[in-house]
Design a protein around this nucleic acid. Structure first.
Lengths: 217, 217
DNA sequence: AATCCAAAAAGTGTTGACACTTTGTGGATG
DNA sequence: CATCCACAAAGTGTCAACACTTTTTGGATT
């Protein structure tokens, strides 16, 4: 996600802020203090400000003049919005990947899929990442890998439960891979959309349950 | 797209750079000179740098250390990538809008659709914008209105031809609106995807023709 | 004339200082 | 005791100067 070479301080600071978010030291919705960050990283405020501005452009940080920058916080409705977007975009991604990826690539995915444990949550996103990387459309790849998956990782690192994670996801992944290997782009897209759509609906159920609870209590 | 109140110089500079892009004074792929921009806007380089960093975060500007920032330039393959993404996202947008928008809103769109001239290119994107705004998913709305449509406007302002613009787009728009009014989300999504898919294919035809030309000459 | 290298010029990266805004504090007032 | 206002403290916004990198220039060499 970040450039390998960090020739400039701004890049380094951005990576450091990223890792502060991943580690949870700065919580979602938390505030970013320029002087504190500058002291911590032993730099002046300029690079910190530019790094924050770049994060703001990415939508990871919200800011109003003269107020501290706030890390974006994903509410459950916002996570649902991300999932609705994923359903559309990942459907297209798998459609494109089904024709763009080589037999060897697909076989490799299938074999590594068989050997790895099914229940690992990192594995869950892994298939989606590899499809995004294999779809051949760089704009779609960036949207998924650099924005949406990143947000979901942050969200998962906080709320212990993994949004939309269900037991039969493993079997659904396998079906998607089979459809890709059979070069059935239409089927692969349908399966992927159903896969993410089910996760979306389980999130909506949670949301409704929460609303019922709050209205009762 | 931009905040109404510009309490800070950075915001003003960002808007000014935007208008330089829209007006074509800075061409796609052109370079941004910090000192020249600073002098032009009568500010120091700090705000200019922060504005550029924010644009970089948005993906509108590319930058490598110690080299001048370059405005992103859309090649035809990249425009096709945008259209493939649009096909997926706008399909979902119209699906959501079909259930989210009120009868009054849809009727208003239908009537304003009848009265306006069909061939205006601004009208073309207008329907898409209103669907994006009415879909109720703010993340999808921002992706379409703040990023993709903006890029396409820039591209159209340059290359005289409007990408994917065909004569029967008007009739297709009308069909989509009818499906929405009939609350047939599935049909509306199919029509929208077909609508954008046809535009994508006409772009791909242009690309193939260009490649043939260059290989011959 | 063409090539190469050093110095100057132009441009970007970073810093510390200063100006402005917001927030917190403490005392005077009712 | 509560309220309000002035003042200090903290934090953000902007600027001008300096350091570093890249590009250009101009001449020396072949």
């Amino acid at each position: 996600m970040l450039d390998g070479q960090e020739r400039t301080i701004v890049d380094r600071v951005m990576r450091e802020i990223f890792s502060l978010l991943l580690s949870g030291e700065i919580p979602l919705g938390g505030q970013l203090n320029e002087v504190a960050l500058a002291e911590r990283f032993q730099v002046s405020r300029g690079p910190v400000r530019e790094a924050v501005k770049q994060l703001q452009g990415r939508g990871l940080v919200l800011k109003e003049p003269y107020l501290k920058a706030r890390v974006v916080s994903l509410s459950l409705p916002e996570v649902i919005e991300v999932f609705q977007l994923r359903e559309a975009v990942e459907g297209m991604a798998v459609r494109l990947a089904t024709t763009a990826m080589s037999d060897d690539e697909l076989d490799e995915m299938l074999s590594s899929f068989d050997t790895t444990a099914a229940s690992d949550s990192a594995i869950d996103l892994d298939l989606h990442v590899r499809i995004a990387e294999g779809c051949g459309n760089d704009r779609i790849r960036r949207l998924l890998c650099d924005e949406l998956y990143y947000l979901l990782r942050l969200y998962r690192a906080r709320s212990g439960n993994r949004p939309g994670r269900r037991g039969d996801a493993f079997a659904e992944h396998w079906q998607i891979l089979r459809a890709m290997r059979a070069r059935d782009a239409q089927l692969a897209e349908s399966l992927m959309r159903a896969h993410i759509g089910r996760a979306t609906r389980s999130l909506q159920d949670v949301l409704i349950a929460e609303q019922d609870n709050s209205s009762k209590g």
